[in-house]
């Protein structure tokens, strides 16, 4: 690093390559995809380049490089999670988009009961209780120990599956 700070380009190439070899396993342990590792590694190398004047060659290089690597990794993860959060569907919004009364149905339960039984057990139980036994979503929720909104969501998903199967 001392040589590269003095402007020795060959030493600088060697340093950056050694840093790449040093940081790749560190990043691979913490990130899922190799493309992601490459992206963050590039960010780190650029940051090391930008901040190289803050290294004087008098103290160990590795803690300095790892400090920058951790900083950029955290930055990347923060952005990634923020992005996922932005694109996540709000549960309240989902609830609003559901029908007010999910127990109303244009077709009889008996006519589709065979398809209902093919659904996952929880969804089938919910539909059976709502449409065969006539319980409301709230009552079903109390009966099977779920939240009312979760019952509505499960019912909504079951309707979707049933609709696809019946339209086939």
């Amino acid at each position: 690093m001392r040589q590269s700070l003095a402007g020795d380009q060959r030493a600088y190439v060697e340093l950056l390559q050694a840093t790449t070899r040093l940081l790749r396993p560190f990043l691979s342990k913490r990130l899922s995809f190799s493309s992601e590792v490459d992206d963050v590694l590039q960010e780190i190398l650029i940051s090391i380049h930008k901040a190289r004047h803050t290294y004087d060659g008098q103290r160990p290089y590795k803690p300095w490089a790892f400090a920058i690597a951790s900083f950029r990794l955290q930055d990347h993860l923060r952005m990634l999670y923020a992005d996922q959060l932005r694109h996540a569907t709000d549960f309240d919004e989902l609830e609003e988009s559901l029908h007010e009364d999910v127990t109303e149905s244009a077709i009889s339960y008996e006519s589709i009961s065979k398809e209902v039984e093919k659904l996952p057990e929880k969804q089938a139980t919910i539909l059976r209780l709502m449409h065969q036994d006539g319980f409301t979503a709230k009552e079903v929720a109390e009966k099977i120990g779920m939240k009312e909104s979760a019952v509505k969501v499960a019912a909504h998903r079951a309707y979707k599956v049933l609709k696809e199967r019946l339209e086939r």
Binding site: G7, R10, V13, Q42, L45, I46, H49, R52, H53
Partner: peptide
């Protein structure tokens, strides 16, 4: 990237 950064690298004052 390493090659590009090395090309840009001139002597820096710590």
């Amino acid at each position: 990237l390493v090659a590009n950064l090395a090309q840009e690298a001139s002597a820096v004052k710590p």
